[in-house]
């Protein structure tokens, strides 16, 4: 692998990792603060991607689709919290698994009813459609760079909100001790509503932004869901910083696992078994630090 290819793969890995972080951060916050396992989290990414496609078709502009799609996903997240998830905070994780698995089925079928089962491509917005020359023969699409930049900006904004604002303080208080925070007068119900719908909106936004890169297809949420769980576990449940590090780590492992060749004793391991590498990483981390890289020790 020459340097230019390596550089391109590195950019791909970063872009993939940052996008994964955007989705996983919502999952880890919801889990850390509300203690809710949301299996339907990936399905909301799919909803976002289909919204981006249909709204872009409707309005003719990717930007208009984003502007309309974001409030829609926030509303959807708030409605789901209000109607269903709120009733299960105090219950066993198993009931949350049951509920959110049911939600996956409902969301997938609603998508099928509303948008059909076809695979769609979303056009890259004209503003970002060029590509940046790296060498004489290789270039890199501007949209992917912008995508990485947007994800990074959102990550920084999230870090700022959580660390330096009053709202962030409430969120952190809720994460470390729900009852105590409530006793101190923090409106924990509103914090939960806000965190859940923000998490869903982040997942939806990631789906919208990824739509021009990855195309839009049924079942796309499932794949991303499992990877997000891996990110959350490696990073430590509830830790946004951990999710950031873990997502980049997975981006690197997954991307380079697919382009590096590795053969041990005549058995081809990479790239043939690249799909396993991410899970091997997770198993190793779990055995070494069961609470994740940045998790609190139980």
């Amino acid at each position: 692998m020459d340097l230019a290819t390596f550089f391109i793969q590195l950019l791909n890995a970063l872009q993939y990792g940052l996008l994964l972080f955007l989705i996983a951060s919502g999952l880890t916050l919801v889990f850390g603060i509300m203690g809710v396992i949301n299996l339907a989290h990936g399905a909301f990414t799919m909803v976002g991607a289909y919204l981006a496609w249909s709204l872009a078709e409707l309005t003719g502009s990717f930007w208009a689709a984003l502007a309309l799609g974001i409030p829609l996903t926030v509303l959807l997240g708030a409605a789901v919290e209000w109607l269903f998830v709120r009733r299960l905070y105090a219950r066993d994780h198993l009931h949350q698994v049951l509920l959110t698995f049911g939600l996956i089925l409902i969301l997938e079928e609603s998508r099928s009813l509303l948008f059909g089962d076809d695979v769609h491509a979303v056009a890259v917005p004209a503003l970002l459609s060029g590509s940046l020359p790296l060498t004489d023969t290789l270039s890199y699409p501007v949209y992917r760079l912008a995508l990485s930049g947007a994800c990074l900006a959102l990550a920084l904004a999230m870090a700022w909100v959580i660390r330096a604002t009053r709202v962030g303080m409430m969120v952190r208080a809720g994460a470390s001790n729900r009852e105590m925070a409530e006793a101190l007068g923090i409106p924990i119900k509103w914090v939960q509503l806000g965190v859940f719908s923000t998490g869903i909106a982040l997942a939806g936004l990631a789906g919208m932004m990824a739509a021009p890169v990855s195309s839009v297809y049924p079942g796309m949420g499932n794949q991303v869901l499992i990877l997000c769980f891996v990110v959350v576990v490696i990073g430590g449940i509830g830790s946004v910083k951990g999710a950031f590090v873990a997502a980049l780590l997975i981006g690197l492992v997954d991307t380079f696992g697919k382009v590096v060749t590795l053969e041990v004793a005549g058995v081809k391991l990479l790239p043939q078994l690249a799909g396993m590498s991410v899970y091997l990483l997770m198993a190793a981390v779990l055995l070494w630090r069961p609470e994740g890289l940045f998790g609190r020790r139980p």
Binding site: F31, I37, H93, I226, F229, V230, V232, V233, I237, Q272, L273, A274, G275, M276, Y279, L280, M282, A283, L286, P290, E291
Partner: peptide
Amino acid sequence: GVYFLMATLAFGQMLFHLFHDG
């Protein structure tokens, strides 16, 4: 607890990819 759930998920997916990609 949840870590058991995640760990079993990871090994399950590892097997899936072993048979899917192998």
